[in-house]
Write a protein that binds this DNA or RNA. Structure first.
Length: 547
RNA sequence: GCGCCUGUAGCGCAACGGAUAGCGCAAUGGCCUCCGGAGCCAUGUGUACAGGUUCGAUUCCUGUCAGGCGCACCA
């Protein structure tokens, strides 16, 4: 009952609208119930009256008042009325709902007694989601761009799982092709160099220091390597896995492109498209009619020399994702791939799947600044800041928070010098500090102070009620993250929650002379702890009990 | 040339088409006999430009200007 008050209000609103006879179904569906930033506009706010009024040319304020007039009966029937202090039409026609203090106190009671699971929201209904991210070519260490994708993808996967989706994380491993061949040649050339041979090292070889390291290890350990590509691939993949692990980014599956090809699935997928009449031959190549699905031009899938373009295995790969039973595919890509969205969506459409079942999230680049100047990045030249360096310099918690702090679609400037200098001023510490403070309080609290029966009505200070209200917003924030496919709002929320806590802490003592009050406040900070704990966990950030 | 993203306070960024455009940093001044001062409180300037859509625009549309990125039978 308590957690579904949102549903009750939504139902009551549409019932009230119905009883007024002016049903505008499409409008009513687009109306929303929002938690306004400003508490003076209530705890829930609906724009329903304005939406309908604009369509029917009525006065929104007047319509709002008429809705409120009949709303009372609808709410009364559901038994929710005792939790609603009043409903008011404000501003240009918002219908604002003000919940009672007891409602919030009941929320706190449930939160503490049920713990983190109480916060869970079921939006996914166990729908199977495959989220694919990072998928960097295993030809060099991960860059900061990959790091950001890792942070966003991992957090997003956590949030989706928490919101009731069945989530699997996947890394698509490009373990064959030109790039890998060149990698092998690069390693071999460096090895010869180390042995004193004079070899040429072409422009298109991988120039990075790590190739030399790799070759040096082969030489020093007297390894017999038959296939340098294979060796380089294995070694670098292992390094990538290790780095991601140190960054708390985990995958359920590493999907090999090589195995995909060997399984014959690429051919199968192309046959399928052929049967459906979506491919044709021209100039000796095989083309996919992606224009029939909204792409600007058709795309080659098999080159005139008989080899596949990148698109061919990708079509097969995505078909395989669906074949494995996933209903929703989420791909995180860098901005350099945005031109690729249409053709992949076209592929999915051609295979017969709804285009909404594939979501592409473009993770904008993180520009690395050193001494205020952007660092040129190129995998080939081996000039870039690696995930490893960021981890060493800034640490996993701060860097993860940092990568998530801006909207995923926004550019991110990351000045290494500043990040290092301001480590203690990084917002992540503000949040973690709140957590550590609470742990400290709980350590000092007498066990006896935590009673079975708590009088939550003792929590009546402004800062206390505001803090509980903030706690109560957590499930709403989870919903926003799912809707926007962006963990960013969670970072904002955790900072706001910490702020509410610090303010409360500064003005009121938790451990005080009044046993009953102490007890109630201990429950309050326990609730804050549960919520911070869950929020940080979803973002993949540690919760230190001492700092 | 075509396409995508971005122009908001000194800097970095917020604001499902909503209400008085917010937050952090930096700056100035206050707050520890008391649970962790990595904290709290106070102080203020702004939507690149020109039109349009509507009850209402930072948000949507058109154009101009400025910045970033992408436009392969590469991956």
């Amino acid at each position: 009952m308590k957690e579904s008050i949102e549903a009750i209000i939504t139902n009551a609103l549409s019932e009230a609208l119905n009883s007024l006879g002016s049903v505008q179904q499409d409008v009513a569906e687009n109306a929303f119930l929002d938690i306004p930033a400003n508490a003076s506009f209530g705890d829930y706010s609906s724009n329903l009256a304005m939406m309908v009024a604009s369509r029917t040319k009525q006065n929104p304020l007047e319509l709002g008042r008429r809705i409120v007039g009949v709303l009372d009966a609808c709410l009364d029937a559901s038994g929710a009325k005792k939790y609603i202090r009043f409903v008011k039409v404000q501003g240009p026609g918002f219908i604002n709902f003000f919940l009672s203090e007891d409602y919030f106190r009941d929320y706190l009671r449930s939160l503490v007694s049920l713990g983190g699971d109480f916060l869970r929201v079921n939006l996914g209904e166990n729908r199977r989601v495959l989220i694919e991210f990072v998928s960097a070519n295993p030809t060099g260490p991960l860059s900061v761009a990959h790091a950001r994708q890792g942070a966003v993808g991992d957090a997003l996967a956590n949030i989706l799982a928490f919101a009731g989706f069945f989530v699997k994380r996947e890394y698509y491993l490009n373990d064959e092709g030109n790039q890998i061949t060149i990698l092998g040649s690069s390693v071999e050339a460096r090895l010869k160099e180390l042995s004193g041979e004079k070899v040429e090292f072409p422009e298109n070889f991988y120039q990075g220091e790590y190739v030399i390291d790799l070759a040096r290890r082969i030489k020093e350990e007297h390894l017999v390597v038959r296939d340098f590509s294979e060796y380089g691939l294995k070694d670098i993949s292992r390094t990538i896995g290790q780095e991601l692990n140190d960054f708390s980014v985990h995958f359920d599956n590493w999907y090999s492109q090589k195995e995909l090809r060997e399984s014959g699935k690429i051919q199968e997928a192309l046959e399928l498209l052929k049967e459906k009449g979506f491919v044709y031959e021209q100039d000796g190549a095989l083309w996919f009619k992606s224009t029939e699905f909204g792409d600007d031009k058709d795309r080659v899938v098999v080159k005139s020399d008989g080899s596949y373009t990148y698109l061919a295995p990708d079509i097969a790969y995505h078909r395989d994702k669906y074949e494995r039973g996933f209903q929703w595919l989420i791909n995180l890509w860098g901005p350099d791939h945005h031109g690729y969205i249409n053709r992949l969506k076209a592929s999915v459409g051609a295979l017969g799947y709804p285009s909404e079942s594939l979501s592409i999230v473009i993770v904008q680049l993180a520009t690395i600044l050193r001494d205020g100047k952007p660092v040129e990045m190129s995998t080939r030249k081996g000039q870039y800041i690696t995930l490893r360096e960021v981890l060493n310099e800034v640490g996993p918690d701060a860097s993860r928070f940092f990568f998530l702090m801006r909207r995923t679609s926004s550019h991110l400037d990351f000045d290494l010098e500043v990040a290092k200098k301001q480590t203690s001023e990084n917002p992540v510490y503000y949040v973690q500090y709140a957590y550590a403070r609470i742990c400290s309080i709980l350590r000092q609290a007498q066990q006896s102070a935590i009673a079975d029966t708590v009088d939550f009505t003792l929590l009546r200070e402004n800062e206390e009620l505001q803090l509980i209200r903030k706690l109560w917003q957590f499930p709403y924030i989870v919903k926003v993250c799912v809707k926007t496919l962006d963990p960013y709002m969670m970072t904002v929320y955790l900072q706001e929650l910490s702020e509410s806590f610090h303010r409360f802490y500064d003005r009121h003592r938790v451990l005080n002379d009044d046993n009953k009050l102490t007890c109630a406040r201990l429950y309050l900070v326990q609730g804050v702890r549960n919520t911070l704990d869950k929020g940080l966990e979803l973002l993949g950030i540690s919760r230190p009990e001492k700092m």
